[in-house]
Structure formats: structure tokens, C-alpha cells
Amino acid sequence: MDEHREGRAAPIAARVHLAHAVVQKLADDRDVDLLHLKGPAVLPGLRAEGRQSSDVDVLVRPSHLARLVEALESVGFEQRTDFSTGSAFAHAANWWHDDWGWVDVHTSWPGVTIDAEEAYAVLARTLVHRQIAHRPCPVPDRTSQRLILVLHSARSGGTADADHAWAGAEPEEQDAVRRLAAELGAEVALAAGIGELELHRGDPSYLLWRYFSEGGTRLDEWRARLAAAPTLRAKAALVTAATRVNRDHLRMELGRTPTRDEVRERQRLRVRRAVAEVSSRAAKGATRRWRRS
């Protein structure tokens, strides 16, 4: 008879399943409301067979975030990025555990523009339970999952997820997704995910979603983020962030806490890249003007 042993080398797929169950147990023990997203939380038929996640994604009720963080850290998860540096949307932060890998904690989902607490309530209103690692885990219902997958695809420059979640849906299911997107203020992001972005050219977030769909330079990204920032204060915060080195990402890249010199060196590199990008645009502009004259 074979021995049983500690499975620190468990394959990623198994580790992700067990990690979802670990996070749910922590949530249950502290009355934390959350929804499991993506990976094994996806309901049958909504994504291509054989697709696997390498990390755990959960959407937590924002007012329960502090309790979840305390719970994660009580069993050895270490925070690696915070909400301001985790992404362009400041919507997620990452925790790492040597046994369970990455857990991405979201307080909102990219593309959803209504208040995060309200958005959570909308998505949780129709939650269903799915067995992950033989444990019941709350997940969004099919309509919500379709929307979440399409928004994720739009945010990631288009993925096969949109084909299954949107193109594979019946017209009435697509109508339900559109209604949900309207309720969540996610119409522009949905449009970006299903090829209808040009209908929203006048929207402040149009450039941002075009950047995510079609790509572009860092300057394009920051210009789009500036256009999408709703207030002057938000625009000012973005300008400050644009010139600051993301210490969390640098730490992940180096595998340790960066020294002050390394941060300074990366800062110099960012400035040089920005200057090169602006110079290149200026040169292209001058060439176009010269050709026209």
C-alpha cells in the first residue's frame, strides 16, 4: 500500500482547488461574505474545457475586507501587493502562501463603476453554491459569471473566455447580461469585451478600454487612465502614481525587498523610458507635419 505524504509539490490545479476551500473556511469562521471567481468557480459550459487557473480569485464584500485579511494572515498568507499597486483599477491585492500559492482578493471588478459595496450586493443577490474540493463555495450565478468573464477578457486584451461566456450564450441570456451590466454601470467594459466599444466613443472610459482591447504604450495607458479618472483629485493622484516606482512589483520581480538604490535606479529607468516615448512621439509628429507641408 502506498504511503500518504505531505503534498507541497501538488500540481497547480489541485493546489488551487484546495486553496479555494481554505479561503472559504476562513471566511465561514469569521462571517466574511465573499464570492469565488474564475478557475474552478466557473460554472460548467462557461469556459473552454481544460482551462486552468494558477491562482485563486475572490470578490469580498468591501466592508468585510479587514476581517478577511486578518483571517488570511492568521494562517500564513503574506500580502505581496496592495490595492493601490495591484492594478490600474486599484481593485485587487495579492497574498502568497507557500502551500496554497496566490490568492487575489478583489473588492470590485474592473469595468464595474457603481459603488463597490452596492456592486457586491447585486452580484451576491443571485449567488449559487458550487462544490470546490468537495466544499460548498458561493459563486456568482450564470448571468453574473458571463459578465465577469467578458469583463475580464476585455481587461486582458481579449481571451477565449469571451467566446464561451458571450458568443456561446442564447440571445435571452445575452440580454440578461446586458441588463446586469447596466445595473452595475459596466456597459462600456461589456461593450469592449463583445466588440461594441465604438458605440461608446464619447464615454470618459472609452480610451482606457480601447487601450486594454488593442494595447498601446505606457503613455497611452496613462493618458487613458487620466481621461477616465472622474475627478480632479483622482487625476492628480494618478499623475503622482505614474511617476512612482511600484515597489510591490519590483519586490516580486527581485524576489526580495528592493534596496533604496534599486528603487532609485528603477525610477531613473522609468523616467528615461517616458522621455524616450515622448521623444519618439514628437519625432513621429514632426515627420507627419513635414510630410503634410
Binding site: D2, E3, E6
Partner: peptide, 21 residues
């Protein structure tokens, strides 16, 4: 089979006939 006690782990691996049991 991969299993664990919640929430602290650790992960445990059962292979072959261990998994069958």
C-alpha cells in the same frame, strides 16, 4: 488525491492504492 484539513493544512498526497482507499 490531494487533501487537507481546513484551514491550516498542510496538503497531503495519496497516490495509487492510497487514493483508491
Amino acid at each position: 488525491a490531494y487533501l487537507t484539513r481546513l484551514p491550516k493544512g498542510p496538503p497531503i498526497l495519496l497516490e495509487g492504492s492510497g487514493c483508491v482507499v
